[in-house]
Design a protein around this nucleic acid. Sequence first.
RNA 1: GUGAGUGUAGCUCAGCUGGCAGAGCACCGGAUUGUGGCUCCGGUGGUCGAGGGUUCAAAUCCCUUCACUCACCCCA
Length: 420
Amino acid sequence: MELTRLRGFQDLIGPSAETFTFIEDCARRCVERHCFREIRIPLVERIELYDRSTGETSDIVQKQMYKIERPPESDATGAMVLRPEGTPGVVRAYIEAGLDRREPEQRFFYSGPMLRYERPQKGRYRQFHQFGVEVFGRSDALCDAELLVMIEEFRRELGIRLTFQINSIGDALCRPGFREAVLNFGLKHRDELCEDCKQRLTRNPLRLLDCKIDAALVESAPRSIDYLCPGCRAHFDKVKDLLGAAGVEFVENPRLVRGLDYYTRTTFEVISADVGAQSTVIAGGRYDGLIEALGGAPVPGIGFAMGVERLALALETAGRAPKFEVDAAIISIGDAAARKAITVARAMRERGLRVEMLSPERRPKALLGRAAKIGARFAVIIGENEIQKGVVVLRDLRASSQAELPEAQVAETVLAARAG
RNA sequence: GUGAGUGUAGCUCAGCUGGCAGAGCACCGGAUUGUGGCUCCGGUGGUCGAGGGUUCAAAUCCCUUCACUCACCCCA
């Protein structure tokens, strides 16, 4: 086959698409209980948006963005890119709508595809999907804690095991000092560092802290919590206290630093053991300077994003992926039976049942095989005999028993069986 | 960008130091004229990823290339 899908892109067919939708629906119900409002924003933005938010030193901006060739007659100015993450676009829309000045306190959720050019592997694709939330105009620790509580509610509803890691990386006041300390530590131990870490030293020294190779050395590296200013420390302590009050289990990870420039104070990652090396399924944190950096008012913010593909993997390995239940398959034998079948099916569907009409061109034997294969609980069989008697045959495919019923009772009987 | 592994039927894979391309599952049909799952019998289905080389002979050995997978980097 020549016209295959592009590398790093995937087709979701049947069960995998349904698992996706299940996760999105679950997340939507959850955030709506927390009064988040939906926001839909473009897939394409100006390239500068990410330079100024995600960070020019980040891999995302340096090498992972899909740039769009713009038709010469286009009135757009400057380069355009397919969005590699959601937060900058949401912040841009928030500022552009004037909300930062009119009604700064807002909470939004979004859902959709993101695109990054990188080598695919388990749990990582070039087009992947994030469900994310952003809260603007709240700087209190209760807000931070409640986001994590919300994630815990979501986790519980999905029925999977996840672990929460949290940290504070300080703010504009204290982070520079911490960064400097890590840099000095790195320079001091330069000869012991792996090649990647030597690169990190110049690009983004904080990254050194989550290096896997130099893990032993990193044990003795400076810890962000020791450099927090009083304000940041009090904030972090409150977040932890509130999580305790809510009964959310978490581990404090002093080496947790996020890859994107805009994070301040609280950062967190939610990890699954079931999704391969890319084990972070949800991640986020506070970004108090971001809105101002993008030209808005000085409004604080915090948010997180979930990787839907990774959650789907976790759901599948946990055996929690949704099953597609078929209530009944309808088998008709002959033209008169087909006329009856169509009304029976319709009546059943009106009661909310999932009903698949089977082809009258195949033999009843093959159709019962088909009914079993699609996982139907019941088969409704209609032929000449049944029409004569004014009934239909309702066959329970699990119990292998059947009964003749008046057409009007079929839907009710199936509903009763489903409930019981 | 770096490293490793894998490409043979729709799917999962076997195929030894070169010698007629196979199994299981799935699908279709039959045993059973209107009754599935189990069993038995039969059938459809292949450019052995692609190109080149060595050889009387290549799925097998050599070279090139492409694709996929996993890992690193980075990230959801």
